[in-house]
Design a protein around this nucleic acid. Structure first.
Lengths: 188, 188
DNA sequence: ATCAAAGTAGACCGATCTGTCTACTTTTAG
DNA sequence: CTAAAAGTAGACAGATCGGTCTACTTTGAT
C-alpha cells in the first residue's frame, strides 16, 4: 500500500467534502492511519498535499469523462452524453466517480481566490483540459470557425452552470436543463 | 458610525477576498478597529457574523442588479443587460459593485458544502431571489410555459457559468460569450 | 444630571493549527 | 546479511483559533 497515494486519497476526500481550510493535517493523518513524519517525508507542506489532491482529482475526472464518452459517436451525441454523465454524477448513479459535492476545482478556487496562486492556476488548467476534450466533438457539429468557438463556449458555460446550480441550489435537474438548452442550440 | 455595520462590511470584504476559514475573528477586529467585546455583543459567534455578511451581500447585489435593469425595456433587452452588467462587474467598470472575486454565494457554499447548513441555505435563497428578478423579463420573451421555464433555466445557467469561468479561468470574456449565446437562444 | 447601553483594550482560556523532532521498527534492494 | 529507505508513535513548539471576561470609558436618551 502506497502511503503517498493513501494520503492523497484521504486528503482529497476530506478537502472535497469539508473544505481545505476546515480540515487540519491531523485529521488527514488520523483518517488515513499514516504517521505525521511520513506525510512530511512525501510533501514539504499542506499546500503541496493540496496540489497533489488537485492533480489526483484532475486525472480521476478526466479519465471518468473520457470513459463516459467512449463508444459514443463523436459530435452531437457525445456533447449530449456529457450532460447525461453530469446527471448521473449529481444523482450518485455512477460508481466510477465519487459522490457529488460540487466541483472540486471550483471549490478550491473559491478558497484560493487569488488567480496567481499556484493551486488556483492548477484548477484553471483542469478546466482548459476538459474544454480540450470537448473541442473535437464541437468541431463535428459546428459549420464555421465562429460557430465552433461559440458552441464550445456554450457547452462549457452550461456545464459550469449546471454544476454550480446542482450544488448551491441542490438542483438535481440542472444537468437535464442544460442538456435541453444545448440540444436546442445545436438544432439551429 | 454603526459598529455592527462596520464589522459586517469589513468581515464581508475579508471573507470574500480570502475565504471564511482563512480569516480569523482577530483579523476582522484589527482591520475594522472594533473591540472584541463589541463583536460578541452584536453576534453570538463567527457563524452569525458570516450569516450577516451573506445577508449584506445579498442586499447589495440584488440592489445593484435592479438598478442596472431599471430604465431598460422589460424582456429581451433586460436579459441581455444582465450580461452587460456582469461584464462590467468582471472588469471592475462599475463602482456600485465591489471588485470581482467570484460569486460570494458560490464561494461560501464551497466552504460550507453541506446543503442543510444554514449559511448554505441562505446562499441558495439568494440565487432563488435573483431568479425571481429575472422571471418577469423571461415572461415577456417566452411564448409558452415550457418556453418560459427553459429560457429562465438558460439565463440562470449561463449566468452561473459566466461567473465561474470568469473567476476560475480568469476569463474576462465569459459574460460576453454568455450574452451571445442567450441572444441566439432568444432569436429562435 | 443621570443611568443604562454600547463602546474600549487586552489578558486569558482551552483547543487546534502547521510543522519539527526523537527514538524506534519495518521494508526492501543489492 | 546488511544498510539505506520508509515507516511508526507521539511529544513538542510557536502561532493562531473562537470565545470569555474584567475593568474602564464614551455616548445618548430621559
Amino acid at each position: 500500500m502506497d502511503k503517498r497515494e493513501q494520503l492523497v486519497r484521504v486528503a482529497f476526500d476530506l478537502f472535497y467534502r469539508e473544505g481545505v481550510h476546515a480540515v487540519g493535517i491531523n485529521r488527514v493523518l488520523a483518517e488515513s492511519g499514516v504517521a505525521k513524519k511520513t506525510l512530511y517525508h512525501h510533501f514539504p507542506g499542506k499546500d503541496d498535499l493540496l496540489a497533489a489532491t488537485v492533480g489526483y482529482r484532475d486525472a480521476l475526472f478526466v479519465g471518468w469523462l473520457q470513459e463516459r464518452l467512449r463508444g459514443i459517436p463523436a459530435g452531437r451525441d457525445a456533447l449530449l452524453a456529457l450532460f447525461d454523465a453530469l446527471d448521473d454524477w449529481f444523482h450518485g448513479r455512477d460508481d466510477r466517480i465519487l459522490p457529488f459535492h460540487g466541483c472540486y476545482f471550483i471549490n478550491v478556487s473559491a478558497e484560493y481566490g487569488d488567480p496567481t496562486h499556484p493551486v488556483h492556476i492548477q484548477c484553471a488548467r483542469h478546466k482548459t483540459a476538459v474544454r480540450a476534450i470537448l473541442e473535437p466533438h464541437v468541431e463535428k457539429v459546428a459549420s464555421s470557425d465562429i460557430e465552433r468557438e461559440a458552441l464550445l463556449d456554450a457547452v462549457c458555460l452550461l456545464k459550469e452552470g449546471a454544476i454550480v446550480r446542482a450544488h448551491v441550489e441542490s438542483n438535481g435537474d440542472a444537468a437535464r436543463e442544460a442538456r435541453q438548452i444545448l440540444a436546442r442550440l445545436m438544432a439551429v
